[in-house]
Amino acid sequence: MSDQRPQRVRVTGPPRYSSGPRNRLGDVHEQTPLGDVFLRSLLKEQLALAFRVLVLIALTLGLLPLVFHLWPDLGDVRVAGIPVAWVVLGGLVYPFLLLVGWRYVRSVERNERDFADLVEGPDPGQSS
């Protein structure tokens, strides 16, 4: 790395002017109908996201006991000399859970940013 690295320059677009109220956070805190709509939409979206994660877990991990119950012969299947149940539940499941969690955090933070943009209105000073 050379020390002649150019200084970071902040690039901003032309100022945009909004016609509505600059900050609608007040609407969310005061119980106006508009604030109600905002909160409902955020709640619905976050809940749907959480629900998707839970369904994914239910359809993968949750089905394993049933699968092994219906086809007990799977117990004899081996991967690299190790029974398949041990490979899946003893090892692979942990990176899988971490990956699901990581993707969830990314999505939920994106939702919150969108909500913030919506509530604050177009405001060049607050954009990230």
């Binding site: 839970l54 991990l61 539940l89 969690g101 969830y104």
Partner: peptide
């Protein structure tokens, strides 16, 4: 045997459920 693998898996997955429903 393998049925007991659900203990460690459940203790970990519990944190995922906690993450998506409760944490923040």
């Amino acid at each position: 045997g393998a049925e007991m693998l659900w203990y460690p898996v459940g203790w970990t997955a519990g944190y995922l459920v906690l993450l998506v429903l409760v944490a923040a």
